[in-house]
Amino acid sequence: MTDNNVTSGVSRRGFLKGLGVGTVATGLIPSVAPETEAAEQRPALRGPGEIPITLKINGQNRQLNVEPRVTLLDALRNRLDLTGAKKVCDRGTCGACTVMVDGQPVYSCSMLAVEAEGRMITTVEGLGTPTQMTAVQKAFVKHDAQQCGFCTPGFVMACTAFLSSHPNPTLEEARAGLGGNLCRCGTYAGIMEAVLEAAKKGGA
């Protein structure tokens, strides 16, 4: 958008400047009365600066301040030191950043952190531990379902979510169902073996 985008004779830049000092009353964007914000616990309008939010991650409430523009992935990695979810494409086309939100698989690079407030977030750190791995994690190790390993946390989350909605998949279903994740090293054969075995061993 440029300044050619004139609204009511006020240029965009002028309009936004005007908003900043609260002078332009074009009524395009109704200003929110401060009382409303104070009255509610969660004001209906926040930002653009940092705002305090609480994210429920792996069963724990984590408080942090983020600008509304921060993605869930950046909040996890850069603010909360949960670096299991990886940033590869940063635009919803590879799956490396997959986490679960309310049990559903989600590209955390394509969800704003503020949008995940009040929901249950599970990252790969919330699955098993090296001594107590989940069925999916064990199967990944057993079938050597990784090479460089960079796609692996995302794939493990995607497989876990997939098995919760498809407890007994065929190979075809697993292939189609995991189509939202890419592996540059091409370890798909091992991943398919792993997901089918994990399904037999009771899934997630």
Binding site: R42, A44, L45, R46, G47, P48, G49, I51, E67, P68, R69, L112, V114
Partner: peptide
């Protein structure tokens, strides 16, 4: 990405 305000209305009117 530029910064923006974030609104979470609970009705269509809002």
């Amino acid at each position: 990405m530029k910064a923006f305000e974030y609104a979470t209305p609970s009705t269509l009117d809002e």
